[in-house]
Amino acid sequence: MDVALLALIVLWLALITYTVLGGADFGAGVLGIFTGRNAERQHEFINHALGPVWEANHVWLIFLVVGLFTLFPKGFAILCVALFFPLLLALLGIVLRGAAFIFRYYAPDTSSLFANVWWKVFNIASALTPFFLGASAAAVASGHLLDPSGKPNAANVSPWLSPFAIIIGLMGIALCTALAAVYLTVEAKDAQDAFLCESYRKKALIAGAVTAVLGLLGLLLSPIYAPGLWRGMLGHGIPLVIVSMLLGLLTAALLWLKQYRLSRLAVIVATAFLLSAWGFSQYPYLVPPALTVSAAANEPNVIKVVLISVLIGLIILLPSLYYLYSIFKLPYPAPGRVTQPEGHRKSDGA
């Protein structure tokens, strides 16, 4: 196999991993906007779910940035210049979200004005990042990222502010929200909290439906705003698109039947196929229509060394992450933090 293609596959797997893990963290923040009844209970539940893992999930984003810089330096340079403003706004969302989570989580009084302001910042920042990352992805896929001279220009904002990019940005928010809601149904089920479980089940179904509608709108707009992506999808990406749609329907059916663990697996696989459909439809371009994967790649010897280093790093990293997820994500509710809402008894194992 071409080492450049192998390097791209590795980065794409990291992108999928960041989406299904870090994306769910952003979605949890968006869900905080739609709490309704028992808002404080739901805030505490989201805090408990995110507490041990939200920082660790960003390791995949760091891996993506460093990997793109090392493996595809030409592509990295073009993307960082052309997408300077949306990526800056996405980074701002990450920073504000992290700061807001900490300030709110450790506030002496979680019902105070101080805590509520930071909770709002957390919610807004959680939507900001997936929107601009989605809009950036749409700008790349559009084939209009570079100006007529073929050079990146940060002042060229039309690719990431087009109707197509806005729809994909909103779809990014909806997808992250759906992921978070599905995950939280499993955690609420494990906590034997029927109220929260049903609440997140309904939100997962709604967010999934919104994701599907926005995805359909994106497909309808792609022949106009991303013709290269449309042709690539019809040429060799359509099977993955169909599979991702079917998996989305399967996720909804499993949620309807209250098969929460199976629905979690289904939504993860559906997201993987959705992102893979984008990659297959855009291939062989890294930045269409000017820069192919092979033209953007570093020297083959450099790529081989990096891939070997990645393999060694994963051998160290994956057991550590497994330990983090399995040991530190204790059952909810945490002792002494919250009480069950009225009408629900605290389980013996909590």
Rank of each mutant, 00 (worst) to 15 (best):
A4D: 09
I9R: 13
V10T: 07
T17L: 14
L21Q: 09
A24T: 04
D25S: 04
D25A: 01
A28K: 03
L31C: 10
A39L: 03
Q42I: 12
H43P: 00
H43E: 06
E44V: 05
N47S: 13
G51P: 02
W54K: 00
L64Y: 01
V65H: 10
T70F: 09
T70C: 03
P73A: 00
L87F: 00
L88W: 13
L89D: 05
G98T: 03
F103W: 05
R104A: 10
A107V: 05
P108R: 04
S111N: 11
A115R: 06
V117H: 03
K120S: 05
N123H: 02
I124H: 10
A127L: 06
T129D: 00
F131S: 09
G134T: 00
A137G: 15
S142W: 08
K151G: 06
A154C: 01
P159N: 10
W160P: 01
S162V: 11
F164A: 13
I167W: 12
I168V: 14
L170F: 15
G172M: 11
A174Y: 04
A180V: 06
Y183L: 02
Q192V: 00
S199M: 08
S199L: 00
Y200G: 07
L205D: 05
A209L: 10
T211P: 11
V213P: 11
R231A: 15
M233Y: 09
V243H: 07
L246H: 01
L247A: 14
L249N: 09
L249A: 14
S263A: 15
L265Q: 06
A277S: 15
Y283L: 12
Y283P: 00
L291P: 09
I303D: 05
V306G: 11
I308R: 13
S309P: 02
V310T: 05
I312E: 09
G313I: 12
L314R: 04
I316Q: 08
I316A: 14
S320G: 10
S320H: 03
G336N: 10
R337Y: 12
Q340M: 15
Q340I: 05
E342Y: 02
S347H: 14
